[in-house]
Design a protein around this nucleic acid. Structure first.
Lengths: 224, 224
DNA sequence: CCGGCCTGTAACCAATTTATAACCGGGTCG
DNA sequence: CGACCCGGTTATAAATTGGTTACAGGCCGG
């Protein structure tokens, strides 16, 4: 589940991203409304968290624009506990709202509720093409082959690639998502992880058909 | 028996959940009305305990919504001992109500009464495949073998796995369900409990056929 | 008070997982 | 060409995990 977060308060942005990341979501960060709009187009997130007060385009504006093209669940954040904001948010098509300050716990609960309401229950196997990923018990099944067990890190890698299937995911983003903050020079780890994952999911690991490398950029999962 | 509890008072929520858990029920917790509705859809509980005063959707609202789709027994909780609440609750289709404060004992008695009234007599053992679990007298029977006595903790573990039979239950979830909040480093306890349970229910405890481990993820109960 | 069971704690081992390092080959660029 | 970067591969060390055994304290009934 990919979540786009837009907030100009950098600290809060990082906090929310970290919280969601810990909970197994894939956060995508936007520092202002304009970035949010472009990232929405390029990343196709499953849910949006929008601050109302932002430079560039306000949360209202972003919400309004996106609602013309998508029914994706939107949660608004506001520092002011004003009836006006609430009403306007819901008028513009937001699904829920939260007033600052709020606890990460609360945010998580509300986001989960939104996901469920939108029928995005993710407990079942996450499938795409011939790949069926079962997050619950850490297994993948490729085509009709037998299910393969994945380690925690392999799971995170494949999950990240699966959510961004067909798009190249940068090495830096993978590093951050899988290991959290880390010495960015540590591409060695990623190299190995990719290698090990390929051993498990590729028919011929020396000629990857599924997990392909975008030289100098990152990796991508091929779609059929 | 799965019971959905909705209350925004976190302490009370935990207290009720604990009480029910001790009595052999499986509590599902919701912190507000919205969560209650989504959890009702995803968890399919056998009974609901709803606080009337909640943010999001009130207990009234939740009750009304659920009654349009299900005849599940509903018990309402209210802090105000007002005739108005009582009448309105019953009008909306609630089956019973309780005014705060109440003793856990009372709540339990009323819930049992509700269950009975709804013809959900639970005296029969909870069975799945060759496993027959009798919650009341803490025994399991595997196939035609003799019934084995379980300790309180073993019972909770098996119950949790039984309800989620066939699906992997994460170690964290098990820890929380069995011991309540606990040092997350305490996987040792789970290790032992699993070991002890396996000694009791597996034909060959060194080659588990029933209680299998999903390495790195948790444990699962195999379905035939 | 004693002996049993239940629970928590520790230690050990084997297997798996993750981290670190080195080597190889292709491609690029001065 | 030769230094260099990049990704793939192999090898090995370190850390983690799960299963097992052993044992001590608590609780309870006799």
């Amino acid at each position: 589940m990919k979540v786009l977060i837009a907030d100009d308060d950098r600290d809060l942005l990082e906090l929310i991203a970290f919280t969601l990341s810990q909970a197994g979501y894939l956060p995508v960060k936007a520092a202002d409304g304009t970035a949010a709009l472009t990232l929405f187009a390029s990343e196709a997130p499953d849910l949006l968290v929008l601050d109302i007060n932002m430079p560039g385009a306000s949360g209202f504006k972003v919400c309004e624009t996106i609602r013309t093209q998508s029914a994706v669940p939107i949660m608004m954040l506001t520092a002011r506990n004003e009836e006006e904001d609430l009403v306007r948010s819901l008028e513009l098509g937001a699904d829920d709202y939260l007033t600052k300050p709020f606890s990460p716990r609360t945010l998580l609960a509300r986001i989960k509720a939104l996901m469920r309401r939108a029928g995005m229950e993710n407990s079942g196997p996450l499938a795409l093409g011939r790949i069926r990923l079962n997050v619950e018990d850490h297994t993948v099944q490729i085509g009709t082959a037998e299910a393969v067990r994945l380690t925690k890190l392999e799971l995170r890698l494949l999950q990240m690639l699966l959510v961004n299937a067909g798009r190249t995911v940068g090495s830096d983003r993978l590093l951050v998502h899988i290991w959290g903050h880390r010495n960015s020079g540590d591409r060695q780890l990623l190299k190995q992880l990719v290698h090990r994952l390929r051993q498990k999911i590729e028919a011929d690991p020396s000629l990857p058909q599924i997990l392909q490398t975008a030289t100098g950029a990152g990796y991508k999962l091929m779609v059929e």
